[in-house]
């Protein structure tokens, strides 16, 4: 029974990681940049949720407010900080992203202080069948994240905007010649990534209600790891990587000897996978031409 519980826990936290990883991987695939500030969008979403819940008291309203605010923030950051650097060296964009990450963290700290805030969304109790005992939030997270992931895959595969996104990630220049508004597509990508981050923040606070300005830092790094494990730039890869990382984390937490080394194990898996497959599980091998 414990094995099943652990697995479901792992799948659920893996779903959260996968949603953050999707934000990283889509932005990488389309804008060819590592958005280091992505983890902090989660944190901002968390604070928006907190503020709405204090004023309105409804977690659903809070989630909607968080998603809207994160989308606007994601677009603003892209327009102000990343767009002027389009065509500049990748390192410059990366450093700007790091700057944005610090900026968001310190702004949040200035407004809300360093003391963690408690955001108790809803106490839903446990789902019990025989000896199996799973908290409801795990099931909610699991179901929602899978629904969102399927919806995103359908969106990318079937809609016109989705196809345009794939085209831009394949070859930006050719896509532009085909009449695709590249800047618009990049903006939409940032918006989708930020919305996913807001959802992930909601699920994370449902699991552990403590909110501080570094809420998104470590999950951000881990989700980035997940995106790289799956092959950065690949949407199914990010999902696989996220779920793999979540399951490994849940199993490792359950074994007392290796539990303190959980972080180290997750990063070791990254290094091992990259040693075997240098572009991740589903990454494309790009031949360098001279």
């Amino acid at each position: 029974m414990e094995i099943i519980e652990t697995l479901i826990n792992g799948l659920s936290s893996g779903g959260t990681y996968a949603m953050i990883a999707l934000g990283y991987t889509m932005v990488y695939g389309i804008a060819k940049m590592l958005n280091f500030a992505h983890g902090d969008i989660i944190m901002v979403g968390g604070y928006m949720l907190y503020v709405t819940m204090i004023t309105a008291g409804n977690p659903m309203l809070g989630l909607i407010a968080a998603v809207i605010f994160c989308v606007l923030l994601g677009i603003t950051v892209e327009k102000i900080a990343y767009k002027p650097l389009r065509g500049a060296s990748p390192l410059a964009v990366l450093i700007t992203a790091i700057g944005v990450s610090y900026l968001l963290q310190s702004t949040a700290q200035m407004i809300f202080g360093t003391a963690p805030k408690m955001v108790i969304i809803a106490d839903m109790g446990n789902f019990e069948v025989g000896a199996l005992k799973i908290p409801y939030y795990t099931i909610v997270t699991l179901v929602c994240s899978f629904v969102i992931m399927i919806a995103l895959t359908m969106f990318v595969k079937t809609t016109k905007i989705g196809r345009a996104m794939v085209a831009v990630s394949e070859d930006r220049g050719a896509a532009q010649l085909m009449g695709i508004n590249v800047n618009g597509i990049i903006m939409i990508t940032f918006a989708i990534g930020s919305a996913l981050a807001a959802f992930a923040g909601f699920f994370m606070l449902m699991k552990a209600p403590s909110l501080s300005n570094t809420l998104g830092a470590m999950p951000g790094i881990k989700a980035f790891t997940a995106a790289v494990i799956g092959g950065i730039g690949s949407i199914p890869g990010a999902m696989c990587g996220g779920i793999l990382l979540g399951v490994v984390e849940a199993i490792s937490f359950k074994i007392p000897v290796i539990a303190p080394y959980t972080d180290a194990i997750e990063f070791m898996i990254l290094i091992l996978i990259l040693l075997v497959r240098p572009t991740g599980i589903m990454g494309k091998v790009r031949r360098e031409k001279v």
Binding site: V228, P260, A264, F267, G280
Partner: peptide, 28 residues
Amino acid sequence: LPALRLKGDYLAIVTLAFGEIVRSIFMN
């Protein structure tokens, strides 16, 4: 050694992972 097989962003994440692994080992 793994860096020889990897490039750019992949290398960046491996070095980041290395730093975190080392820190976690000494912490525990």
